[in-house]
Simulated assay, not measured.
Amino acid sequence: MGLAVLIVSAPSALLAGTKAPLQIVVARQQQSLVVYDGDTVVATSDVSTGRRGHTTPTGIFSILEKRRHHRSNIYSNAPMPYMQRLTWSGIALHGSNHVPDYPASHGCVRLPSKFAAGLFKMTERGMHVVISDRQVTPVETSSAMLFQPREARPPRPPMSDVPLRPAISHFDGASFEVAMTHSSPSPVLEHDQPPIRILITRRGDQESMRDLQVLLTTLGYDPGDPDGRSGPMTLAAIRSFQTAEGLPVDGKATPDLIEAVYRKVGRNMPSNGILRVRRAFEPLFEADVKIERPELALGTHFLQFQDTDAATGEGKWFGMSLDNALSKAAKQRLGITVDADPLEFNPLEQSLSRLTVPEEVRRRIARLLADGSSLSISDTDTGLETGEGTDFITITRAR
């Protein structure tokens, strides 16, 4: 059976390697790859994904590294021409002389050699690759929640209850302040900078523990570095707080204990969601967001921003929804009692309507927006694949 490899309606400049914010969608069921510019198909190809026992993971990825000549350091030095790495654990797009119409690889996405060479010229590091069980297509999406450059207007006086934190990996344990009281008369956009990556997810145990450690330090206890991990010093600090406040002394960071610490400091409990921003594979900042109806799964969604109109400060967002494969244990841990249905009408817009981002955060993001910026929404936090030298990698179904 012959392979269907096709490049359609692609301007010569595009094939020569323009910086248009393209994105790639791989469908495991269809064994296909489609390159999109917004919602326009630029190129298509058959592929061969991972076979049983070596299944290609699904989720939201980006190209981390490109090598025209590469050999596998896992599988017998096998050639992987036009390799485009998606994870540091060994998943990539690459060319091959054997691309059957069924899963046959060890986890990578095999491309016909000629197409792999052409695709290599079209892409650049940071370009997004979505891998899904079924075929998904980006659709232009409108929502009041979606960020726009026109929102980058001078800020009002700062709100003390809006936390804006450096990313966890950039926190050195020192105290810090976020000041947003001065601004230039007109919005200052940073479009000459690389596009940003935004992730909105539920607040995890690590964020809750880190914030608890910071508050315990404020109260005069010593939980050690605010690293989000419950070590001996943190347990001792909790016990000391419990003793001082006449509470049962067990050293456990229970919801009641956390609420008591916040009450003692005179602060409200944090929001149930968190927003993270990266740029050029480096963390920039984090902020709290509110998720309405937290018992309902958010699902997993991906959007990309492009086609900014300089006159209006408006751009277009193109989004898609992926299957949300949450385990029973994960749903219980996250307090989810109602599953997301990716086949329901407008699941992406429904999830967007449940998110509230503080105005100060929206303005900061608006100043950073550039064509190719992206927004990922997921119930689960980033896993081990997200780290140094990556964008946010969201795995919906592991290998």
Rank of each mutant, 00 (worst) to 15 (best):
M1D: 12
G2P: 13
L3D: 06
V8Y: 07
S9E: 15
A13N: 15
L14T: 12
V26D: 06
Q31N: 08
V34C: 07
T40G: 07
V42T: 05
D46V: 06
S48Y: 04
I63Q: 10
L64C: 00
E65Q: 12
N73D: 12
Y75N: 10
S76F: 14
S89N: 15
S89R: 15
L93V: 04
D101C: 08
S105R: 03
A117W: 05
A117Y: 05
G118V: 09
H128C: 03
I131T: 04
V136W: 01
T137A: 08
P138M: 01
T141N: 05
P149G: 02
R156F: 11
P158L: 10
S160I: 09
P163K: 02
L164R: 13
S169R: 09
H170Q: 10
T181L: 10
T181E: 13
G204A: 10
L212I: 02
L216A: 03
L216S: 04
P223A: 06
P223V: 00
G224P: 01
P226Y: 06
R229V: 14
P232G: 08
T234P: 07
G246Y: 07
L257Q: 07
A260R: 11
Y262A: 06
V265I: 14
V265A: 07
G266S: 06
N268E: 13
R278C: 06
R279W: 05
F281C: 03
F281H: 09
P283W: 03
E286G: 03
E286N: 07
E286D: 05
P294L: 05
H301V: 04
F302Y: 10
D307A: 14
T308I: 15
D309L: 10
D309I: 08
G319I: 00
S321D: 09
S327I: 04
V357P: 09
E359W: 08
R367M: 12
S373D: 08
S373M: 08
L384D: 12
D391T: 09
I393A: 05
